[in-house]
Design a binder for these strands. Structure first.
Length: 280
DNA sequence: AACACCTGCAACCGCTTCGTG
DNA sequence: CCACGAAGCGGTTGCAGGTGT
């Protein structure tokens, strides 16, 4: 048994849109707004599948779309975001006003990939191509796969945490969601030798111990990094004091970056504010 | 001029996620 | 908790236009 079709294929047009179809769609959405794509074609008098209408509107007809070539700034931003987010085109598109996920995806596949390859950079990993096959790396890559599998298997729990809400936002503190997204990105990049690393540098243990004694640094356990602070998974040596003093229990990106003395990826000034990365 | 090949992009397809009853 | 439909997403395809031979 196959999947049921999203529309009646017999009575729908396919292929390139005509000017008349575009006009019908635009005028319908202008007067009725977006929504209920499934019923829209019939209401608008179009012999198209709802999906097709949605795509046409989002990728081509929307009035706020920026047409034309990508600027150098957009180019750089796409590369940076891709190194952090991977092929999450819709997420990347949210950071590029007027650009659609489809447009960015196409641009990546046709221009950016080639550009990176010319520079000797693997577009998939964002690492130098000739660095890929060292014996040390082969063991490292299996480690990376392991850690990635662990992170991915965390998925459902991470989602639950991500839904906790933003009650702490008004204090300017990092909410659970931010902490989760931050940790995931941080962990994913662990093995990537990127100039544009999103995490603050991992502090070596000796340095931590020393600073802990002077009360300069609060060490986070893995559970806290994933947003399980105060749970049974938490093994922080400062959990107790954190629960007593809620204001010190949250780690914001800005807290961290200011505590370590630099603004990684411009998080302080919100150039790349991952806390606001949401699905459309 | 004719053909083959390449490139870029719009559109499609199938899977996943989300919302609702 | 489950089932179902709608919407969203990312990979892939198809085709028009450009370029090389």
């Amino acid at each position: 048994m196959g999947r049921s079709p999203c529309c009646e294929k017999d009575h729908t047009n396919k292929g390139a849109w005509t000017k008349e179809e575009d006009d019908k769609l635009i005028s319908y959405i202008k007067s009725h707004g977006e929504g209920c794509w499934r019923s829209l074609p019939r209401s608008a008098g179009l012999q198209r599948c709802g999906k097709s209408c949605r795509l046409r509107w989002i990728n081509y007809l929307r009035p706020d779309l920026k047409r034309g070539n990508f600027t150098l700034e957009e180019d750089d931003l796409i590369i940076k975001l891709h190194s952090l987010l991977g092929n999450k085109w819709s997420l990347i598109a949210t950071r590029l006003p007027g650009r659609t996920d489809n447009e960015i995806k196409n641009y990546w596949n046709t221009h950016v990939k080639r550009k990176l390859l010319r520079r000797g950079i693997d577009p998939a990993t964002h690492r130098p191509i000739n660095e890929n096959k060292t014996p040390q790396d082969s063991s490292d890559s299996s480690k990376t796969e392991d850690s990635l599998v662990k992170i991915l298997s965390f998925g459902p729990q991470l989602e639950k945490i991500a839904n906790f809400g933003d009650e702490r936002n008004e204090k300017g503190l990092m909410c659970q969601k931010e902490r989760v997204e931050y940790s995931v990105v941080e962990e994913r990049c662990l093995d990537l030798n990127l100039e544009l690393r999103i995490s603050p540098p991992w502090q070596d243990q000796l340095h931590d111990e020393k600073n802990l004694r002077f009360g300069r640094v609060k060490r986070m356990c893995t559970a806290c990094r994933f947003g399980f602070g105060n749970g049974k998974e938490c093994s922080c040596d400062n959990t107790k004091s954190q629960t007593e003093d809620s204001s010190s229990s949250s780690y914001s990106s800005t807290d961290i970056s200011s505590s370590i003395g630099y603004d990684f990826l411009g998080l302080n000034n919100r150039v790349l504010d991952f806390s606001t990365l949401e699905m459309k």
